[in-house]
Design a protein around this nucleic acid. Structure first.
Lengths: 253, 253
DNA sequence: AAGTGGTCTAGACCACCGG
DNA sequence: CGGTGGTCTAGACCACTTC
């Protein structure tokens, strides 16, 4: 009878824990500082380690923490704003972008890519690998698929160094007049190879950016870029993007 | 001695499970179909339920599964492409966008928002709430912050219906000449209220889209939109975006 | 070798949805 | 009410980094 329904929707422990930790991060810790280890923290809050980890996992997802096996949990710096699109369309590899060329191979792309490029399923295309760094930290890994028909006059395909081959392909691509590009962003999880390049564990959350380059009325190149979701804020448009602190507590009105 | 180092990097069980399940989803299940429950699945694969859940969690993150408490786990349809940006800048509420106005209040925004709008920390602004639906499913929830100085001639603020008040504010906003906008996308987790509106549990992964509207040389409106990361693929640019299947297995070259 | 986070187990109870 | 997914526990062992 008259039992008031206070706490009729009890907050899960890990959710409350996350809030408490988040506030502690704001007030008592500074960027780069190492937190107590998980066993100690769990004991201190009187919960099982798995429950504590659930809270830490969310904070890492929100970019507030960084966990490294064998090392510890540290307070993460604010997310880096990364420009992925400008109003003017530009080819990849144009001077001024901060991508680093890795290599270039000639191989059959995944079926889904072949379909977009309208090449045959087993037809080999140029695959340029690039990566993007900031402050010594890897931000993104990219695979750029370029059908051979997009760079018909390519001559120096037998260049010795892998990087030189990649550069040659991109230079050829620039001769086409870019008519447009479209882009999409979605959440994914890192494949084993991407994870390695991004210095994360397989399955880590990533932002998948797909860019289609259009020239001569067809798709002449397709880029699949994998950005670290924990450290990146992708920015589009005129200037460098907005600096908003999205911490859930702070977003509360 | 001669033990070959095969499996020197043994794959975690949940990772392997995820792969197996993913292939099963492709070949043996169709969209909307209900999977066996977690206890049965775990038993069938000979793992603990927690391990199975780790695999399911990732598949849900990738948009392949949908789990609902009290109901079951179903095979999710492919992600919906959602246009969040066109080349031409437009005001929110322009005829043709598919947002639904909810209401409009006058209140002090979070400090981070006030800083971007360059209003005082305690100065109230108009807060328009909108939501976006597709096929009866909620896609996104938005809070649109508009300083009073952006809509100085607003008269009918005392309109009776909440929706009418929201519409009045947006109509006033359209009188300004939009000079530009910039946008950023990052990963976040749903606050309790957003989660409710998006029909998800608190903490569910979301894509946070921040848009700043610039007119008369200053920020005249700021939009914070929360998109369901499991069901949405955000598209930018000329056309509807690229349809690429990002399933990790299929992305393998 | 010691200490960290990552994986895994076998249970238990709870909140929610449907008939 | 029974069945579902969501939360939580108290352990164990492993992979990795650092000293």
């Amino acid at each position: 009878m008259g039992t008031t329904q206070l706490e009729s929707v009890p907050e899960p422990k890990y959710w409350h824990l996350k809030t408490v930790l988040s506030e502690a991060l704001d007030s008592e810790f500074s960027v780069g500082e190492i937190l107590p280890n998980e066993r100690d923290l769990a004991a201190r809050f009187g919960v099982a380690r798995a429950t504590l980890r659930q809270a830490l996992e969310q904070l890492e997802l929100e970019g507030r923490l960084q966990r490294r096996r064998g090392v510890g949990t540290t307070v993460a710096p604010p997310r880096v704003g990364v420009a992925v699109g400008t109003e003017q369309h530009v080819w990849p590899g144009t001077p001024g972008d901060d991508w680093q060329l890795a290599d270039c191979t000639l191989a059959a792309p995944p079926a889904a890519v072949a379909d977009v490029l309208e090449t045959g399923r087993d037809e080999p295309v140029h695959i340029v690998r690039r990566s993007r760094m900031t402050h010594g930290q890897p931000l993104a890994a990219e695979l750029l698929y370029i059908p051979r028909s997009s760079v018909p006059d390519l001559s120096a395909i037998d260049a010795p160094a892998p990087v030189a081959r990649a550069r040659a392909v991109l230079r050829e691509l620039e001769r086409l007049e870019l008519e447009g590009q479209d882009r999409s962003v979605e959440l994914g999880s890192a494949r084993a190879d991407d994870a390695k390049e991004l210095d994360r564990l397989p399955g880590a959350p990533v932002l998948l950016v797909t860019t289609r380059f259009v020239a001569e009325g067809r798709t002449v190149a397709l880029s699949l870029a994998t950005y670290r979701a924990d450290t990146c804020r992708l920015t589009f448009g005129d200037s460098g993007g907005v600096e908003i602190d999205h911490t859930p507590e702070r977003r509360a009105s």
